[in-house]
């Protein structure tokens, strides 16, 4: 189960400047764990106290994971995970 993860500019220091990286996992939790293994330090930028950081939005196939199970959101094989700083109108 492989997903393509889009990394925002502010987190690219962890990926050597890469905009997109591959990660394994069938849930968002597993994908982030796999990301951390290859790009140390990135997990702390995304997760605090076992849930997603307030100022980060994560989308699986463009759907906001906060409405789809949070870290337990399913990531289909070949899916996309998009990480964005929370700036858009209506962000909590």
């Amino acid at each position: 189960m492989s997903a393509t993860v889009s990394i925002p500019t502010i987190l690219r220091t962890h990926t050597g400047g890469e905009k997109q990286v591959k990660a394994e996992g069938s849930t968002l939790q597993e994908v982030i764990t796999d990301l951390e293994a290859n790009h140390p330090g990135i997990k702390d930028r995304l997760v605090t106290d076992g849930s997603l950081h307030r100022f980060v939005n994560v989308y699986v196939n463009d759907e906001d994971v906060r409405f789809a199970g949070g870290l337990d959101a399913q990531v289909p094989d070949g899916g996309t995970v998009t990480i964005l700083p929370a700036v858009a109108g209506g962000a909590r």
């Binding site: 939005n57 989308y59 463009d62 759907e63 906001d64 906060r66 409405f67 789809a68 998009t82 964005l84 858009a88 109108g89 209506g90 962000a91 909590r92």
Partner: peptide, 16 residues
């Protein structure tokens, strides 16, 4: 910026 009208309880899903 969160519009004053926004009510998160109405939404069940959100796409970007």
């Amino acid at each position: 910026f969160v519009p004053e009208l926004y009510d998160p309880d109405v939404l069940t899903g959100r796409y970007s």
